[in-house]
Amino acid sequence: MGNSMSELIHSACDAMTRLALHPLTLDIDRSGTRITAVMEQYALQRRSRGPYSPDNLPPEAVEMIERVALRLMMLPERPNFTVEGGGRWPALLMTLPDSRVQVRYVVPEDAPPVYQPDLGNVTLSGDTRIMLKYLAESLRLAAGKFRGEPPVTLTLSYPDDPRYEEHTEGVDAEFLDVIPPVLAAFELDRSGCSRKQRAALDDALRTLAYDGQPVEPLGRTGFTTRIGSARLQDSGT
């Protein structure tokens, strides 16, 4: 359990990049990262329905194992795979034990009801990773004032973007699909932080913010900031 929160976040970003996945759900705490993603189209060419058995594995999961293993072959750690075949739809659980990253691949019918960008549209996924790296570096900077990083947890959701009409005004119709109608909204739970730890992280977030990226107060003790289609906030309640 020696990984810091910033290390866990960087490991999650690295896994998402190597696996070319878009997270439908994402949760990170000191125990590790848990991600839900849809299986790739390549793996969905042969479809199946359960129940399954060790002698009758879902072809979707088998194809994903081969694809994931190929993409991670240069990593020093080996992924572990668990085929989930006890329900109506197959799923595949991939775990990187050292990085403490867990990805649950599901078929489209079993995916959570959230926005999914079109294949090849990486705007939302790219902004998601940029925001995660920004948070990781802010945690590292804040740790310089203490013996460790502020204790936080992180969850991802996809609410409608209140500034979508503003961002799409005047954009040619052929480019509208590139702009997501939702936000990759990260909620940072700092309930375990002391007042000084919150202040140190607030300072770090402002220090590392990009040009034109405000970090604004929210609620009694929170903040909100945005990079492209990604938002990071502590609701401060």
Score class of each variant (00 low, 15 high):
residue 142 A to C: 14
residue 29 D to A: 09
residue 226 R to N: 10
residue 205 L to N: 06
residue 134 Y to P: 08
residue 237 T to E: 15
residue 119 L to Y: 10
residue 49 R to Y: 09
residue 6 S to Y: 03
residue 202 D to N: 06
residue 202 D to S: 14
residue 154 L to T: 06
residue 24 L to W: 03
residue 173 A to E: 07
residue 69 A to H: 09
residue 55 D to L: 10
residue 14 D to N: 03
residue 78 R to N: 03
residue 142 A to K: 11
residue 175 F to H: 09
residue 51 P to Y: 00
residue 16 M to G: 00
residue 233 Q to I: 04
residue 75 L to P: 06
residue 12 A to G: 04
residue 184 A to C: 01
residue 17 T to A: 15
residue 212 G to M: 09
residue 30 R to W: 14
residue 212 G to W: 04
residue 143 A to W: 11
residue 41 Q to S: 07
residue 175 F to N: 13
residue 27 D to E: 14
residue 62 V to E: 13
residue 181 P to I: 06
residue 143 A to Q: 12
residue 224 T to R: 13
residue 78 R to T: 13
residue 12 A to E: 05
residue 168 T to N: 04
residue 214 P to S: 08
residue 103 V to E: 02
residue 225 T to H: 04
residue 118 D to T: 13
residue 100 R to N: 00
residue 114 V to S: 07
residue 55 D to A: 05
residue 198 R to A: 07
residue 64 M to Y: 01
residue 234 D to K: 04
residue 13 C to E: 01
residue 141 L to A: 11
residue 197 Q to W: 03
residue 35 I to T: 02
residue 72 L to Y: 02
residue 186 F to S: 03
residue 50 G to E: 03
residue 35 I to W: 01
residue 48 S to I: 11
residue 73 M to I: 09
residue 183 L to I: 07
residue 94 M to V: 07
residue 135 L to F: 06
residue 150 P to V: 13
residue 94 M to R: 02
residue 164 Y to A: 03
residue 29 D to Y: 01
residue 56 N to C: 07
residue 185 A to R: 01
residue 206 R to P: 05
residue 51 P to L: 04
residue 76 P to Q: 01
residue 82 T to V: 08
residue 225 T to K: 02
residue 168 T to M: 02
residue 148 G to K: 12
residue 98 D to Y: 08
residue 54 P to K: 03
residue 113 P to C: 03
residue 18 R to W: 10
residue 29 D to C: 15
residue 96 L to M: 09
residue 4 S to Q: 06
residue 189 D to M: 02
residue 169 E to A: 12
residue 132 L to Q: 09
residue 10 H to I: 12
residue 190 R to M: 12
residue 178 V to G: 13
residue 177 D to L: 12
residue 126 G to W: 05
residue 34 R to H: 00
residue 234 D to V: 05
residue 220 R to A: 14
residue 56 N to M: 08
residue 192 G to F: 11
residue 44 L to M: 10
residue 149 E to N: 12
residue 146 F to H: 15
residue 173 A to K: 10
residue 53 S to A: 08
residue 189 D to C: 05
residue 184 A to M: 02
residue 166 E to I: 07
residue 96 L to N: 06
residue 86 G to P: 00
residue 228 G to F: 01
residue 23 P to A: 11
residue 29 D to F: 00
residue 24 L to T: 15
residue 152 V to I: 12
residue 101 V to M: 00
residue 68 V to R: 02
residue 137 E to H: 14
residue 155 T to P: 11
residue 110 D to H: 14
residue 231 R to K: 00
residue 45 Q to F: 00
residue 195 R to Y: 09
residue 50 G to M: 05
residue 176 L to P: 06
residue 32 G to F: 00
residue 52 Y to D: 00
residue 178 V to Y: 15
residue 169 E to G: 10
residue 194 S to C: 15
residue 71 R to Y: 05
residue 232 L to Q: 14
residue 72 L to M: 13
residue 222 G to M: 03
residue 2 G to V: 12
residue 114 V to G: 06
residue 148 G to M: 06
residue 234 D to Y: 08
